[in-house]
Computed example of a mutant assay.
Amino acid sequence: MQHIRLGQKLRKLRFEKGYSQEYIAQCLNLSQKTISNMENDKTTITLNTLKKISNELDVDLLELLSESKVVVQHNNSHDTSTFNGVVNNIAPEELILQLKERIEDLKNQLKLKDELIVLLKK
């Protein structure tokens, strides 16, 4: 199985849509240099940005990530340097499992925050 880099895939999909780096950067509220760095695998890409890219390129997020080794960075509002790990997308099933686990973690975090809000309102 030949693996394709995420940056190569982003560039290919952007070309297929006929978008320039400047155009996609503007749509995503990023700089052209950031798009260039993404396409050349010189930067990590946040999960939020990956979602925006998949929407803009009209491609499913799982399709975008399949057959790639992707470093996913998740930043929270308290610490912009937080790095939460690497997703190795060897098989779509593994990616789905990883994403489901992350979704459950986020649901639990939201539940705790909601409970704290209720307590603070009392």
Results as ranks from 00 to 15, higher is better:
54 S>C: 11
104 E>Q: 14
57 L>V: 13
109 Q>V: 13
27 C>N: 13
28 L>N: 08
23 Y>W: 13
36 S>L: 04
107 K>F: 12
78 H>C: 12
10 L>N: 01
37 N>H: 07
83 F>C: 05
15 F>D: 11
75 N>L: 08
116 L>T: 11
87 V>Y: 06
34 T>R: 03
43 T>F: 04
63 E>T: 06
29 N>E: 12
3 H>K: 02
20 S>K: 14
43 T>Y: 05
53 I>D: 03
67 E>L: 00
24 I>K: 00
39 E>V: 00
31 S>Q: 11
42 K>E: 11
63 E>F: 07
33 K>E: 11
30 L>R: 07
2 Q>M: 07
69 K>N: 02
62 L>T: 10
47 L>A: 09
37 N>D: 10
104 E>H: 12
120 L>F: 13
50 L>R: 02
28 L>K: 06
27 C>I: 12
15 F>V: 08
59 V>E: 07
69 K>F: 00
40 N>D: 07
8 Q>T: 03
7 G>N: 04
33 K>I: 08
77 S>H: 07
64 L>C: 07
61 L>V: 11
46 T>R: 06
41 D>I: 04
56 E>T: 14
102 R>D: 06
58 D>K: 15
114 D>T: 14
25 A>W: 02
92 P>E: 02
14 R>F: 03
69 K>S: 01
31 S>D: 10
99 L>D: 01
77 S>K: 08
91 A>I: 02
32 Q>T: 14
79 D>S: 12
36 S>P: 02
108 N>S: 15
29 N>L: 09
87 V>C: 09
30 L>H: 05
108 N>K: 15
18 G>S: 08
70 V>G: 00
68 S>E: 00
112 L>R: 15
55 N>D: 15
81 S>R: 14
118 V>W: 11
56 E>G: 05
83 F>N: 08
116 L>G: 12
43 T>R: 05
47 L>D: 07
14 R>V: 05
64 L>K: 02
49 T>Y: 08
90 I>R: 00
112 L>K: 15
102 R>Q: 14
48 N>R: 13
85 G>F: 12
72 V>W: 00
53 I>C: 08
95 L>V: 06
73 Q>S: 10
57 L>P: 02
44 T>Q: 10
30 L>W: 03
28 L>T: 07
80 T>S: 11
96 I>M: 02
91 A>N: 09
32 Q>G: 04
105 D>W: 13
111 K>L: 15
93 E>T: 04
16 E>C: 05
2 Q>L: 10
25 A>Q: 06
68 S>W: 00
11 R>C: 06
45 I>T: 10
105 D>N: 13
77 S>W: 07
117 I>A: 11
93 E>Q: 08
96 I>Y: 02
53 I>F: 05
13 L>G: 01
101 E>G: 04
71 V>G: 08
17 K>L: 08
63 E>C: 06
61 L>T: 05
113 K>W: 07
81 S>D: 12
7 G>L: 03
37 N>E: 09
